[in-house]
Simulated scan of single mutants.
Amino acid sequence: MEDKVHIADSGAAEPTPAKRPETQRVQVLERAFDLLNALVSLGGTGTAGQLKAETGLAGPTVHRLLHTLIARGLVHQLPDRSYALGANLVPLGEAATRQLGGLAVPQMQSLVGELGESVNMAAMESEMVVYIAQVPSPQSMRMFTEVGRRASMHSTAVGKAMLATMEPDRVRAVMASTGMPSMTAKTLTKPGPLLEQLPVIGQQGYALDDEEQELGVRCLAVPVPQGPTRMALSVSGPTARVDDAFVRHAVPLMKRTAAAIGRRYSRS
């Protein structure tokens, strides 16, 4: 709280208070966030030496900050003495991603009006996709995905759209961590075929889940640029309605909407 100074009335003009900087930055907080971001960039775990190299901070500073973050549950130390993101970050991340989903709803509603099918927004969280917003189709037979639902990346269009933005080694690490469970007979369950798809997805700018998550359902997704984390926008519906002609019509509209959502995120 800013201190208040009371000056007795002596007939003289009150001195003008010194102007404070518009943004008051706290260096120790910036350094703590730098460490957390460094852990994210290292894939969630890293040694003290790696964190020192990533952040440019001195070794004693890194250790002092890590001890404080561990005490708050934001970081934890592994048996091999490396460090990992802590469990207390999870509710913070979940609350933030749901808030981000709410920001996208107006654009998603417009897209439902143009396409007539359900529109979802998903983000990458703990190497899975989590659905953070949905606007359902007005049609009687429609797809419904519960907000907060988690799904594998390899079997969903939103997941594949996000995987296509990663380096192959990072994709392999994600698949090794989560596995590639079979959801339907059409689900890809080996890294090789998935890795072959991703450059094509990156080049065309959209991913397709053709009954890989649920039989009778086709979903297409585009990545959201400028998002605070990896995110994707998807449209899903019955295979009879979401055919090749629908995909050709929908993809340009989805890319336009995703770009508008990304610009909104960049301003918020």
Rank of each mutant, 00 (worst) to 15 (best):
Leu194Glu: 00
Thr229Leu: 15
Asp169Ile: 03
Gly148Asn: 14
Leu163Trp: 00
Thr156Val: 05
Gln197Val: 04
Gln213Gly: 15
Ser182Lys: 12
Gln204Asn: 13
Thr187Glu: 05
Pro228Trp: 14
Val235His: 00
Pro223Glu: 05
Lys160Asp: 04
Leu163Ser: 05
Leu198Ala: 06
Gln226Phe: 15
Thr178Phe: 05
Ala221Lys: 03
Thr229Gly: 14
Ser234His: 03
Pro193Cys: 03
Leu195Asp: 05
Glu211Leu: 09
Thr178Pro: 07
Cys219Gly: 07
Thr178Gln: 15
Gly192Cys: 06
Thr187Ile: 02
Pro193Asn: 05
Met153Trp: 02
Ala151Gly: 13
Thr184Arg: 02
Gly237Tyr: 00
Glu214Gln: 14
Val200Gly: 12
Asp169Ser: 05
Gln197Arg: 09
Glu212Pro: 07
Pro193Lys: 01
Val171Leu: 00
Met166Gly: 01
Val222Asp: 02
His154Cys: 01
Glu212Asp: 03
Glu146Gly: 15
Met175Gln: 01
Val171Trp: 01
Val158Cys: 14
Glu167His: 05
Val235Gln: 04
Thr178Gly: 06
Val235Pro: 01
Ala207Met: 06
Ala232Leu: 13
Val171Asn: 03
Leu198Asp: 07
Ser152Leu: 14
Val222Thr: 06
Leu195His: 00
Glu146Met: 15
Thr187Ala: 08
Pro191Asn: 01
